[in-house]
């Protein structure tokens, strides 16, 4: 029997049973833009940056199971245009002031905006008021930058076993909360060594006294665009040259 494969932008990409379109693409080193997806956690499908067209239907690549012979459109003007609009939505929803952000240069939201040539936020800014939480000795929470990807929620719940983070509210009022009656990180059992401290794709969970350690020009996405890194970082099969 021939191996299972999808056609990703016309290219045959193999996959194994129970893999999603995203799994197959990541394994093949093909970049599908994404923010809320992380291969170590259960897929969620909320940011919608990984929207692709599978057999003519718009679906989330990170949650849609791959099927043999499925034709998937990924890197097309229509999809990239929609993704750019989604990024603009995320930028105006929060307060993303890159010049003062410790995560600038290492931020996936910013890197994706570069990747998709997002030159402006396009929409009117919401300028929400989201106070910081500086209560914790080692970590600062800057909610202004939260894109509600729930990676910290999943990491804290599924890896750390602590459930330090959760979402509350609904709709445009949805927001990240901390597992403490006071709402303060210092009153939770969060620790800098937690997996949850490592996974924020933007600049919400910030280690104190470490900001701006890497000079401009040497930060992660200064060096190479995010898509190039994804393609370079693909897992190599045995016997394959690096």
């Amino acid at each position: 029997m021939s191996p299972l494969s999808i056609l990703l932008d016309g290219l045959p990409v193999p996959f194994e049973d129970h893999q999603t379109i995203m799994d197959a693409a990541l394994a093949a080193g093909i970049y599908i833009p994404h923010l809320c997806h992380h291969p170590e956690f259960e897929p969620q499908g909320s940011c919608k940056l990984c929207t692709v067209k599978a057999n003519g239907r718009y679906v989330s690549a990170c949650t849609m199971p791959a099927r043999d012979g499925m034709e998937v459109e990924n890197n097309s003007p229509d999809l990239n245009d929609k993704r750019r609009t989604l990024l603009q939505m995320l930028f105006v929803e929060g307060n993303h002031f890159c010049p003062s952000c410790e995560q600038s240069g290492n931020c996936m939201l910013q890197a994706l905006a570069y990747e998709l040539e997002m030159l402006s936020p396009h929409f009117d800014q919401f300028y929400p008021n989201r106070p910081l939480d500086a209560s914790h000795a080692e970590v600062l929470l800057d909610f202004n930058r939260c894109i509600l990807c729930e990676l910290c929620v999943r990491a804290s719940r599924d890896v750390d076993g602590k459930s330090v983070f959760a979402l509350s509210g609904r709709g445009i009022g949805k927001h990240l909360i901390v597992n403490a009656e006071s709402g303060r990180l210092a009153d939770s059992n969060f620790a800098l060594s937690d997996k949850a401290a490592q996974v924020c794709p933007v600049g919400v969970i910030i280690e104190k006294r470490r900001g701006f350690a890497v000079p401009i020009g040497e930060r992660r996405y200064d060096v190479e665009p995010i898509s190039v890194q994804a393609e370079r970082l693909r897992p190599r099969r045995a016997g394959e040259e690096c």
Binding site: G45, S46, M89, L90, L148, R170, G171, K174
Partner: peptide, 20 residues
């Protein structure tokens, strides 16, 4: 806008944008 659950980006932000 009032009833969007807020899970996905397009609906959460888009329903506010069209209200605006």
């Amino acid at each position: 806008k009032h009833e969007s659950c807020g899970f996905c980006t397009p609906c959460r932000v888009g329903t506010s944008l069209v209200v605006n």
